[in-house]
Design a protein around this nucleic acid. Structure first.
Length: 579
RNA sequence: GCGCCCGUAGCUCAGCUGGAUAGAGCAACGCCCUUCUAAGGCGUGGGUCAUAGGUUCGAAUCCUAUCGGGCGCGCCA
């Protein structure tokens, strides 16, 4: 059920009769104020501009043509030409009953499934995942889950960074340790962070080490088996780390979703040769470059996009072109979505332009780079810890669970230690995820332990708490799995809750269109909030409640719990029966 | 220098294709647990939507300029 869509369709039909062009915007929105009903149709005013008539008169004509008597108890013109629609309580009740009897909660299924490739997480394998990897990983995962729920075929691609210059440095450092007689078992690969720092220090300070590192990269990339063996050690360790994080985070990425940079190695020569042949790439200052006039500056200097370094090495630009070709042609993607931070915006614009020109991206493949801002510290400056490093993601998650545990020990009286541990895990991780997912900002965002680990207000625990309250009532009422009853919407609380419950599909459509799960976060918070008000104002199991009213409110509760659970599941956040 | 993103309450942020009186949470201050879980509910205070112009019936939203912040601009990813 998508009420907005229904109203839009009917408005468009009326527009056609009025002789308006096909693309005219019906501008159906949720009403901003309760006295304006639940929905408002604002399209008459825009249409009047096109027809050069009086907007209020046109709204009148539109209203006459609109057939709304089945769903609305009132539809009236207000102000310069708004049409305010108040929906019938029993029509809403009927829609709710249908949703309650449906596994998909009344959300329709995609009539034309698309193949969508989603590139997310993509950690750098030379280091452990830090808080900066959180956004890409969980936003991507939420979008992936939502697309799958809607019915698209989703192909996850974890474009892990396993092929860059830094691996030469790591291998060189490891090689020296081995040569010094240190046993491989004893080399502290487990703490990759430390190992990386040692290597980096030598790279910066030690004469000759940088050159040695570069040699190792070349050897590695040209297939030297000894190098590849050492390299594999780093990769295995790294993947083990990221697997741990994914599991803790309740993220759906699996081994099979890993398609690292190295996987494209064999395609790179072909890509570069092809670009030369197509005369897109030309030699410039020793390197091979594609010049993009589309991105020229004021003086007409085209934007350079280097695809091969002086000396023949490839770059991440080359790899990303190969990835484009693979995804668009071999995976037959209708849409490619890439989640990275905004600093790479220019790069991906260039990748798309070159790929379109060279034919690596089919015309029918949409290419969406979805950027997000860089992480800042609480002082508003680029984020660093006191020691100048980064916060490991594992540490943040562990801290969240510890804090949740403390709160639970305080509040929960009748839970066993085992239950508390399980709940603390869901609450702590949920809080971290929701704090990040609920932000829309494409601009920079501020990393704060306290904000990440807050359990009060608009947070995951609030939603989880609302869920446990509903479940508690349903347990007490001892309702059957397939409980069905008529719904009556009397109070404003009940009606508002009802309308919100019916907006799930609208919400999911928005999430999919713009790849922004924060819309779903807002929706679920509002839903939980309305349920909390309903809970306080509308007693269910207390004395003196009529049986019909009791059943009706139970129905609303059941539906609310299911929508909350489903919505949170799409965000990768778990619920529990008690907390 | 050029380009991209951003500037909304003390703080963190919503605000969907331009819509009516700009909303939440935190913090502050009141009230509500012998009644379905108080991680909750109800209420109060708090705003030149960075600034100045423009477009129009209507602008936080679109355009231009200025100021402020972040980032990116040839061989790292």
């Amino acid at each position: 059920m998508n009420i907005k869509q229904l109203l839009s369709d009917r408005t468009l039909a009326a527009f056609t009769v009025l002789g308006l062009p096909e693309g005219t915007n019906p501008a159906v929105t949720q009403s901003t104020r309760p006295e304006f009903g639940e929905y408002q149709i604002n399209g008459a005013m825009g249409a009047a501009k096109l027809l050069k008539t009086n907007p209020r008169e046109l709204a009148g004509k539109l209203l006459e043509l609109l057939e709304l008597s089945d769903i609305a108890e009132k539809a009236e013109i207000a102000g310069p030409g708004f049409i305010n629609v108040s929906l019938k309580a029993d029509w809403l009740a009927q829609q709710l009953k249908h949703a309650a009897g449906d596994k998909r909660l009344g959300v329709s299924i995609n009539p034309q499934p698309k193949t969508v490739v989603v590139d997310y997480s993509a950690p750098n394998l030379a280091k452990e995942m830090h808080v900066g990897h959180l956004r890409s990983t969980i936003i991507g995962d939420a979008v992936v889950r939502t697309l799958e729920f809607w019915g698209d075929k989703v192909i996850r691609q974890n474009h892990m960074g396993d092929w860059g210059t830094q691996f030469g440095m790591l291998i060189a450092h490891l090689e020296d340790k081995l040569a010094a007689g240190i046993d491989l078992e004893q080399v502290a690969l487990a703490d990759l962070e430390d190992f990386y720092r040692e290597a980096k220090k030598r790279f910066d300070d030690e004469a000759g080490f940088a050159d040695k590192s570069r040699d190792y990269v070349v050897k590695l990339q040209s297939g030297d088996s000894h190098c590849q063996k050492l390299w594999q050690l780093f990769i295995d360790t790294s993947i083990k780390h990221s697997d741990e994080v994914y599991q803790k985070l309740n993220v759906t990425l699996k081994h099979a979703d890993i398609k690292p940079e190295s996987a494209y190695n064999s395609m790179l020569h072909g890509i570069v040769d092809d670009l030369k042949q197509q005369k897109l790439a030309v030699e410039s200052m020793g390197a091979l470059v594609v010049f993009l006039s589309e991105l020229a500056d004021k003086d007409g200097n085209p934007s350079p996009f280097i695809v091969q370094k002086t000396g023949g090495g490839f770059l991440y630009s080359t790899t990303d072109l190969a990835a484009c070709q693979y995804r668009s042609h071999e995976l037959a993607a209708d849409r490619i979505i890439i989640f990275t931070d905004a600093r790479q915006a220019l790069h991906f614009k260039q990748v798309e332009l070159v790929s379109r020109k060279a034919g690596y991206l089919r015309d029918s493949t949409a290419y969406d780079h979805c950027p997000f801002g860089t992480m800042m510290g609480e002082d508003g400056k680029p984020f660093k810890t006191r020691t100048g490093g980064t916060v490991k993601l594992v540490d943040l998650l562990e801290e969240a669970v510890v804090r949740a545990n403390t709160v639970l020990q305080d509040k929960a009286t009748d839970l066993t230690a085992g239950e508390i541990a399980e709940i603390a895990n869901k609450v702590g991780i949920g809080a971290v995820k929701f704090a990040d997912l609920s932000k829309n900002r494409t601009s920079d965002y501020i990393f704060s332990w306290d904000a990440m680990l807050s359990f009060e207000g608009a947070t995951a625990p609030y939603l989880q708490y609302a869920y446990t309250r509903v479940r508690s009532i349903l347990r007490k009422a001892d309702v059957a799995e397939n409980f069905q009853a008529d719904i009556v919407l009397q109070s404003v609380h009940e009606k508002q809750l009802a309308v919100k419950l019916l907006r799930l599909e609208e919400t999911l459509q928005m999430v999919i269109k713009d790849a922004q799960p924060n819309v779903l976060c807002n929706y679920l918070y509002e839903l939980a909030s309305l349920y909390m008000s309903f809970y306080e104002a509308c007693p269910i199991l207390k004395d003196g409640i009529e049986p019909e009213l009791r059943s009706s409110r139970l129905m609303l509760s059941i539906l609310a719990s299911r929508v909350l659970q489903q919505g949170l599941d799409l965000l990768g956040i778990e619920v529990m029966e008690r907390m």
